[in-house]
């Protein structure tokens, strides 16, 4: 069974959907992602759909599900790179994905996740920042 790879980047998880997904693949991704959040204690999930040429109600539901589930698991989700034609079609289809945070591109998506983390960390002591993931940190971090 093929799977969509999930990359770990510090306390965030990255998924880039590059293939025309059949429904089972979407379900597997949903399972994989939630168990990975649980296992790694990730605090953010970024899903890049810029290569997706179509989002139908099933994939739309999967996106909404992942967003809702990860929120319960204490991780923020951001979906990035939806193509204009896909957005127009989704609206016409009747799906507006309320409650799912969207961003224009990976850069802006990452900025959103970091801002969410910073806001959460702002409540607690500063030295606890990033300490829970054992070190890997952000992509921009110097070794």
């Amino acid at each position: 069974m093929d799977r969509i790879p999930i990359l770990r980047m510090g306390e965030f998880l990255l998924v880039s959907i590059q293939v025309d997904m059949h429904d089972q693949l979407a379900m597997t991704l949903q399972d994989d992602l939630t168990s990975m959040i649980e296992r790694t204690g990730a605090r953010g999930v970024l899903i890049d759909i810029s290569a997706l040429e179509m989002v139908d109600s099933f994939i739309g539901r999967m996106i909404a599900n992942i967003s809702g589930m990860s929120r319960i698991l204490d991780a923020h989700t951001v979906v990035v790179g939806m193509q204009p034609a896909v957005a127009i079609t989704l609206v016409e289809l009747g799906l507006s994905l309320p409650g799912v945070k969207m961003a224009l591109n990976i850069e802006k998506g990452m900025a959103y996740l970091r801002a969410q983390r910073a806001a959460e960390e702002g409540d607690g002591p500063n030295d606890l920042r990033y300490s829970d993931d054992g070190g890997a940190g952000y992509g921009t971090r110097q070794e």
Partner: peptide, 12 residues
């Protein structure tokens, strides 16, 4: 309204 929603779906 649809335009506004589509813009939001794209993340703007």
């Amino acid at each position: 309204l649809k335009t506004v929603t589509a813009i939001r779906l794209m993340g703007a």
